[in-house]
Amino acid sequence: MGFLDRFFRRETPRKSAKERLQLVLIHDRADISPGTMELIRKDLIKVISNYMIISEEGIEMDLERDGRSVALVASIPVLEVKRKRSREGDK
């Protein structure tokens, strides 16, 4: 099976073990649950919306590994930068 799996780049048990581990360890290491991630995401949107108009649907936010440490990486598409920074007038 090894040969054909590799030849057709099929998902082997070895590969899925590795991928599942990498995913679960990111959350273990950061000690952040998916629920907390969602809260961070909402708060990020709130804060950044004070300064720019952003596409909420286009936000990509993830924990990524870097050796033994974990980084929070967010990509937030900006639609428009607000001319004047005003905390009141953004609604």
Binding site: M1, G2, D5, R6, T12, P13, R14, K15, A17, K18, L21, Q22, L25, G67, R68
Partner: peptide
């Protein structure tokens, strides 16, 4: 088992644990 893709290899474990 590692060669036939059924099991994690030493290189996989090292990459994941990074020590």
């Amino acid at each position: 088992m590692v060669r036939s893709g059924k099991m994690l290899g030493v290189s996989d474990v090292m990459e994941i644990l990074a020590i």
